[in-house]
Design a protein around this nucleic acid. Structure first.
Lengths: 182, 182
DNA sequence: TGACCTGTGTTGACGGTGTCAACAACAATG
DNA sequence: CATTGTTGTTGACACCGTCAACACAGGTCA
């Protein structure tokens, strides 16, 4: 039932955009191809995004939102033990990067502050604070400590998407924890 | 003395390309503008690079080469103490990223295996091996250990180019060393 | 019912971009 | 000098992002 009005172009564009990026990289994403793939004319996207950069921004935002959800749910289903919670989040991070490469690529290529990026970081910071209250994490600005953890995990994800994580991730997670010890 | 033949276009292109990236980001680098800036017609670069991607690759390669030099010289001028050597390299890494943002951006945006990338990694791995012989670094595949270090330092550089390193870098360097202890 | 507005999708046009082809200027070599 | 190979140039093409002007639909209100 091809109607004149699409219905929810915005969401369709984000989704199809992701698929293209998955196939050929951010660099190769083209508004015209995207529009064609969604079955709409080349200027239609401009009714929903002021320009290409804004579309990328929206994809990025959507990615961070899903990402924050992953982190949060990993942490929440890890039980009460701090080490387990932190570790679950680290694994979720790497797993997200590995399983949503397109999203991950845009998220850190476009780099844009948003509600969702803040939320992602906040989730980690909260957990660190938890650990501090328990005495399982040394004192210090929890924001700084969260940065350290983020840094390590981000490094792993960025640098080693292809290789054998298991052992490596475990080891690095040990490194990370070492930095938080009281 | 504007002659018909430029003399060493190749090098000039790489240099001017870097300057453009510095000003406006990789995404905004355009072959035509680059050629114009070097004072040459738009197709001239094709005598030295098969296509745009190859030019980016060459810039990336040049960056890694300079990068490897920085690492090596930092290590060599740090004296014989292992911890000092490793630390000097970490600082050199972050400093390179901060001081050569354009190069750094291309290096990890284009991502391309080359002689220079291998050399950079090799320098680090050698140092780790040194540390192992001294008993200052735990046993294990030096390549894996080098990856861990690289990961941490890379994470720092990527994530915190703007913010206040000093304290943070120091702390993270502690984290890193913790992971290497016997 | 019909006139009108507003939100959405379309087509036309323009300047800019990467790159293929054909040509032109220089350098080196016989 | 004639030739040949290297390097730079201009022309042409398809494609890209985006501005303008227009077309279709759904709702509102007379």
């Amino acid at each position: 039932m091809a109607t004149y009005h699409h219905g929810n172009l915005r969401a369709a564009l984000i989704e199809a955009g992701l698929k293209i990026i998955e196939e050929k990289g951010v660099r190769a994403l083209t508004l015209r191809e995207l529009a064609a793939r969604v079955g709409v004319s080349r200027m239609a996207p401009y009714r929903h995004f002021p320009d290409k950069e804004a579309l990328l921004g929206a994809i990025c935002e959507a990615g961070f939102s899903e990402f924050a959800d992953s982190l949060e749910s990993a942490r929440n289903s890890a039980g009460p033990d701090f080490a387990a919670r932190l570790s679950a989040m680290a694994v979720a991070y790497v797993r997200f990067a590995a399983g949503h490469r397109a999203h991950y690529e845009v998220m850190f290529a476009v780099r844009r502050e948003s509600e969702a990026t803040a939320r992602s970081f906040e989730i980690l910071r909260e957990t660190i604070e938890e650990g501090q209250r328990n005495g399982e994490v040394r004192e210090g600005d929890p924001t700084d400590l969260a940065r350290v953890v983020w840094t390590v995990v981000h490094g792993i994800s960025t640098l080693h998407l292809d290789r054998e994580f298991p052992a490596f991730t475990l080891f690095a997670s040990g490194v990370m924890r070492a930095g938080l010890l009281p």
